[in-house]
């Protein structure tokens, strides 16, 4: 049995959802055109992940085994809708920038994956920690990818101009750059974590 501290750290480094488990690739590539967007997407996913993990571990004993996946999806989709409406109301510019990827949190494999693999088997407190760890791991990964792409493509970081914009190839903010940056970051992560 892992202790609680390990449950939390597990998602942040050792089983980082983006770099190690390779789950949720679509938002990792699609929303990381800048550090801010990546961070925003990470936090939105974190919120859904924590809420759905907690609720699923609370109601797990009443869900018949056969319909558990549809039941999980309904719980997740409800929270995604709540987050979507909140973002539309309070951070409209971020809501616009992330676009279709906010409703698509529903089909982010991390969330259903953690519901099935962790929250449906553990108590509320540990599920909360697991959601938090995985969410933080996802958020820092997305922020990092976003920051690298923003610096390389736009010569800025968190919207702050570094004054090198005219030298930077714009392709890094576009689709191919997303694949390249994530690919090379993954190589780096593999290399560093193997030691």
């Amino acid at each position: 049995m892992m202790n609680n501290w390990k449950v939390l750290w597990n998602g942040i480094i050792k089983q980082n959802p983006a770099f190690v488990l390779v789950l949720g690739m679509c938002p990792t590539l699609g929303t990381t055109t800048s550090a801010e967007n990546g961070f925003g997407m990470g936090v939105a996913t974190l919120a859904v992940l924590v809420l759905s993990n907690v609720v699923i571990s609370l109601i797990k004993q009443w869900i018949p085994d056969k319909v558990r996946i549809p039941a999980f999806i309904v719980v997740i989709a409800s929270f995604v809708t709540v987050i979507e409406l909140l973002m539309q109301a309070y951070v409209p510019s971020l809501y616009k920038a992330l676009g279709v990827f906010i409703p698509l949190i529903v089909v982010n494999c991390i969330i259903l994956g953690r519901a099935e693999a962790f929250a449906s088997k553990n108590n509320v407190w540990r599920s909360l920690l697991d959601g938090l760890g995985m969410g933080v791991g996802f958020t820092w990964a997305l922020t990092l990818v976003g920051a690298v792409r923003e610096v390389l493509g736009n010569g800025a970081i968190f919207g702050y101009e570094l004054g090198i914009k005219s030298y930077m190839p714009l392709v890094f903010v576009m689709a191919p750059g997303g694949f390249f940056v994530l690919g090379y970051l993954m190589i780096l992560f593999n290399r560093l974590s193997r030691k």
Binding site: F179, G183, Y184
Partner: peptide, 9 residues
């Protein structure tokens, strides 16, 4: 995966 991502790029 990393090689696949670079190929996709």
């Amino acid at each position: 995966v990393s090689m696949a991502l670079i190929t996709a790029g």
